[in-house]
Design a protein around this nucleic acid. Structure first.
Lengths: 296, 296
DNA sequence: CCCCTACATAGACAGCGTCTATCAAACCCT
DNA sequence: AGGGTTTGATAGACGCTGTCTATGTAGGGG
């Protein structure tokens, strides 16, 4: 039964029988049969049938919610029992917005010393993808914006407040003093792509300052932005925490962006599943510790 | 997996392999094997082994919490899918304290008209048993006291406030006017047994009034109390809602018990499981409706 | 000390899940 | 419009797992 629910979740996520089967490590007929049996046992159609996957029925959508809970709780059970057996161990799968990637090391530092059997798997994703993956049980926790966008049924731990700086080569004329958002009208910029929340935040502040920008370079990667800034006359806007790793000993400089002193809270997001598994509880505790000592 | 968790829950409840197996409709070796495999899969001991059942290990206790959630959610999934298929249907298993048994008909009235495919199964239990059965998934909801005793992770809907009357044959000397708790010192009484919360409440009010009672007749059944009162010179103390069904056209009379005007909230208790299944949601809605029109 | 209760173990059997191979339908592109 | 491709369903074989009955073994009680 639980296996079938896992396959059902995979199907809803992949929207494709073949891919879902591959993701579950079974063949396509096996997954097809599992879904059919699930429908038989529950007595309702879960998936619109045709010669293609055409989405979930309303009942399928409701069933998906329950399936996620059941499968998630089952994983929690297994994980907690393993923790009881061999101490904190296993993988923590994290997804992180690009501008918070440098904060992950603050989170893992100390944690891995205390719990040497815990492995981390960190991937860079957009904030929307992070919430999706959290729902689909593809990650255990996320590091993303806590305000601004609706979060689901999750537990959040704020860690720091993002503040923004303009980053450019040290000889850039704007670097002599604080820069207002409104000053950026004609500055050549590299920015993150508009599907990313950081970019939407920046767009919003620029718009409020009456500025309209049209970046020549857009990317989902901060590294791409910085390497462009390094090699040319461009500037970029980055959160302090994302920028500082590039500033030490480089030819780059930065100045705070003011008016307004924009600030957005970034923190840990985890599925709200009472009680928390020991590993997750430890991670959340670590995040609360970070927030208290004020790493930003 | 889910079957094994069900067996594990049954074992924890029955504290006996044979009885748990019978409760699950399997033989004892099957259940033994299931528990053993569960322990193997989770990699921990769940049950203290000997030639007898000797309780759960700490890990078993934690696993039991998860198992209850997982099994409960699975049942919710099935129930909700059946509701989607054939409208509200199925059984609602209720456990009710004896003094609230007459209120059940208020709850079921109208409900069964609207939802003819819903069956009710009502059993009379003590408030402690009700909370136990709620945890063990043996009932879907309970009707019991909402104050006074600690409730677990449950949803509660208050329905009415219990108020107390003295019940005796119509010719009983005390029935001429309101009676104070303190007047009951030498009155021969029949009361519920001391393991029942109603009795503990009554004891408390009597004690506060400085009265010490020693009932000659104790029972877990209100019917037993009333039949004794009918046939002899005894009196009993009952909530209004429990008493009134016996008063109409009988040789009995009642007077309010005052000083203090004691009152205890009774209502519906259901496991807190988001989202609620359609039947349970409907039942809770019905209970809220009752509370609003003030059936007491 | 013996018997009874309680749980574990052994072996047989059935049902279910999974695989490979194949089919049917719908979509896509020329 | 038609051939090729993609997508999911179906068929049949095989192995695993869960369940049963029968039996063994260890404590507990009289």
């Amino acid at each position: 039964m639980i296996d079938k629910l896992e396959m059902f979740i995979a199907l809803a996520r992949e929207e494709h029988f073949g891919r879902a089967a591959a993701a579950q490590g079974v063949t396509q007929p096996t997954l097809s049969a599992a879904i059919k049996q699930l429908e038989d046992q529950l007595g309702v159609m879960l998936v619109w049938r045709g010669s293609r996957y055409r989405g979930l029925t309303p009942e399928g959508q409701r069933a998906l919610d329950w399936a996620r809970r059941i499968v998630g709780d089952t994983r929690s059970l297994r994980q907690e029992m393993r923790a009881a057996r061999e101490g904190l161990s296993g993988d923590i799968r994290l997804a992180v917005i690009p501008t918070a990637l440098t904060v992950v090391s603050d989170l893992t530092a100390g944690f891995t010393e205390k719990h040497p059997n815990v492995r981390f798997s960190v991937q860079s994703k957009t904030s929307a993808e992070i919430l999706d993956m959290l729902e689909n049980l593809e990650i255990d926790a996320g590091l993303t914006y806590l305000d601004n966008e609706p979060l689901g049924r999750v537990t959040t731990v704020p860690i720091y407040d993002e503040r923004y700086v303009l980053v450019a080569r040290a000889d850039h004329p704007l670097l002599s003093g604080p820069v207002r958002w409104g000053d950026l009208g004609d500055v050549p910029l590299c920015l993150l792509t508009p599907d990313m929340q950081n970019r939407r935040i920046i767009n919003q502040h620029l718009a409020e300052a009456g500025v309209d920008v049209d970046p020549q370079i857009e990317s989902t990667s901060v590294v791409v932005l910085v390497s462009h800034v390094l090699r040319s006359n461009w500037a970029t806007i980055l959160p302090v925490r994302a920028a500082e790793i590039f500033l030490a000993g480089s030819e780059l400089g930065s100045v705070p962006l003011i008016k307004p002193d924009a600030s957005h809270t970034v923190g840990l997001v985890a599925p709200h599943r009472e009680p928390f598994t020991p590993v997750l509880a430890a991670l959340l505790a670590r995040a609360r510790g970070l927030s208290e000592i004020g790493i930003a």
